[in-house]
Simulated scan of single mutants.
Amino acid sequence: MKTSYVVPMICVIVIAAALTQYYIGQPADLPTNETNETVLRRIELRDDFSSFIQHTNADIEKRDEIYSTIISDWLEKKHQAGFWKIHEKTLFRVLNGREPAQGFMDGCFEIKLGEVPSDIAAIDKIGSELIDYADDLAERGDGLNAYHIGHIVFVWGYDLLQRNTMLDARLQGLWMLNAGGNVMFKMLRQYPKISAKVEIDENVLLELSDHVSEIDQRWSKKLLLVRSVTPHLGDLMHIAEKDEDLTFRIEGVLRLGLFQHAAKSRGNLWKMQQLIESAQKDENILIQKAGHRAAAFSLNDAKVFQ
């Protein structure tokens, strides 16, 4: 190749690189070890949980019996018929004991930041009421029905956690798994004869309870990364792009919409906008929705979270 051609080509390459660097500015922040491969791995419940989650006719009848009693008593005591009317479909979907479809809560609320969906708050209210009711039964010496209440909360928690993608629904499920499991374990300890009637080994339940607590701890660490008011942008972008758990990818993408307005380098801004655009074209509909919501996030919206 003639020298006369080489020099102009080199100049073009150098100019292009310079323009790219000018446009992007400093390179985007790299992720830290806080979002290593282990952290980004999807956390699965152990297979032996399934032995505790049964949707047989007998289970359904028992749950329906307690469901109707608890709900009617609760409404009468709390005078919250209006609350029940608003959330009737959601609560029935979760509380009636039938095996729910995958994603049964994912379409019940809008994908957005900053508030717990009202339907999730309603489930939390019912769950807390049931745990209180179980404690009351135990104090009155009815350990078996207290155990059944705990098991119902445990099953609902499992369904919320395992059969949904949205973070708030799954967090509620994790809480209910913990709360229901604790009631079951306490009743087995307090009333040893229950074990023969429910055919559950106390040691296995304790082991599974420890497993749920471990998941809770790992999730808590990841939540600190995605819901921090001053996140490490490299870690946040890494979660939004690479997390194996769709739940945290969705949350990461949403947070990109917020923090793109606080990017201190063009490199970070460029990378975040690229990830948001990519999310809008993702094959998963929930990631798409998160991408569209993030893209629509305005500077005024961002100020609300400051």
Rank of each mutant, 00 (worst) to 15 (best):
K125G: 13
E44Q: 14
G252D: 07
P192I: 08
W74K: 03
N145A: 04
M1Q: 10
T20S: 11
H261W: 06
R249S: 10
V39L: 00
D106H: 04
G252F: 00
D201T: 07
E199H: 08
G141Q: 06
L224S: 15
W219G: 05
I250D: 00
I276C: 10
Q172S: 15
N300D: 13
H211A: 12
M187E: 15
F109E: 02
I131R: 03
G150E: 05
L167S: 09
M237K: 10
D168I: 04
L246C: 07
K186M: 08
L75Q: 15
G103E: 11
L236E: 03
Y22C: 02
L30W: 00
I239K: 02
S4I: 09
E202H: 02
L161N: 05
I66W: 07
P100N: 10
L225G: 06
D243C: 05
D64S: 13
D59W: 04
S298P: 07
R266M: 10
D64R: 14
S213A: 11
R140W: 02
D245W: 11
G173E: 11
V6Y: 09
I71K: 14
G107P: 03
L188S: 09
G291I: 05
L286W: 05
D59V: 09
K281T: 12
A81E: 12
I71P: 05
D216C: 04
R140D: 07
I43P: 01
R218L: 12
A146K: 01
G157C: 07
D243L: 04
R266H: 10
G181F: 00
L144K: 12
D29V: 03
I60F: 09
V116T: 15
V204S: 05
V155E: 12
L177F: 06
G141I: 09
R255G: 08
S209W: 02
S4R: 04
L113H: 02
V7R: 14
R255Q: 14
A122P: 01
T56I: 04
H87E: 14
I60P: 05
N268V: 05
E251R: 08
Q80K: 12
E88V: 08
T3W: 15
T165I: 11
T90V: 13
L256C: 07
W74I: 05
E207D: 06
V204L: 12
I71Q: 12
G97D: 01
K85T: 13
R98D: 13
T165Y: 01
